[in-house]
């Protein structure tokens, strides 16, 4: 089946099997391997991408369901020279360890901050219900998103962790 869709700003046309999952299309046909597969069942959120601006789980969407849509993957966030404020937040606040959940976390957080520019800690935690992290205990992910939120509003971001040695 022919599919035409826009991925990270580029209009693409591909022939795919009707049963091909969107995440496999992105990873294997487009070599956009920043979108990860963690559970094939929509629970873990490692495969989160933006579809027409909304965060979706690409492991449970068929490629053919995305015909005509606009997809943003982690590779379409920020640029080689400039990081998106959320990417910067994850680095500054040590919001990642193994990095496997990180692209999905960043895309979910982009969606959250579109809806709610200045979320509370509780709102951030609630919004991550569909994104699992097994490394960080979420502590620094919350801070990373707070950092990104501040920066996107033009406010001074919270101080990075541990500017000085020790405590």
């Amino acid at each position: 089946m022919n599919v035409t869709l826009t991925v990270n700003g580029t209009l693409l046309s591909h022939d795919v099997e009707p049963r091909l999952l969107l995440v496999h299309f992105l990873r294997e046909h487009l070599a956009l391997t920043g979108t990860h597969v963690g559970c094939e069942s929509s629970f873990c959120g490692a495969c989160t991408v933006l579809m027409n601006g909304k965060a979706v789980k690409s492991c449970t969407i068929l490629t053919v369901q995305a015909i005509g849509s606009t997809i943003t993957t982690i590779e379409g966030v920020g640029s080689t020279e400039t990081l998106h404020p959320l990417q910067e937040g994850f680095r500054e606040m040590h919001g990642l360890q193994c990095g496997y959940c990180t692209p999905g976390m960043i895309l979910s957080a982009i969606d959250l901050l579109q809806e709610n520019k200045n979320p509370s800690e509780a709102e951030i935690r609630a919004s991550l219900e569909g994104n699992l992290c097994r490394c960080t205990g979420y502590h620094n992910i919350v801070r990373a998103i707070q950092y990104g939120a501040a920066k996107l509003q033009g406010l001074p971001p919270p101080a990075s962790l541990f500017e000085e040695a020790g405590r």
């Binding site: 956009l32 920043g34 982690i74 590779e75 966030v77 920020g78 990642l96 990095g99 990180t102």
Partner: peptide, 10 residues
Amino acid sequence: EDAALIRGAG
């Protein structure tokens, strides 16, 4: 490590 991982370039 993070420069690659936050860009999905891991």
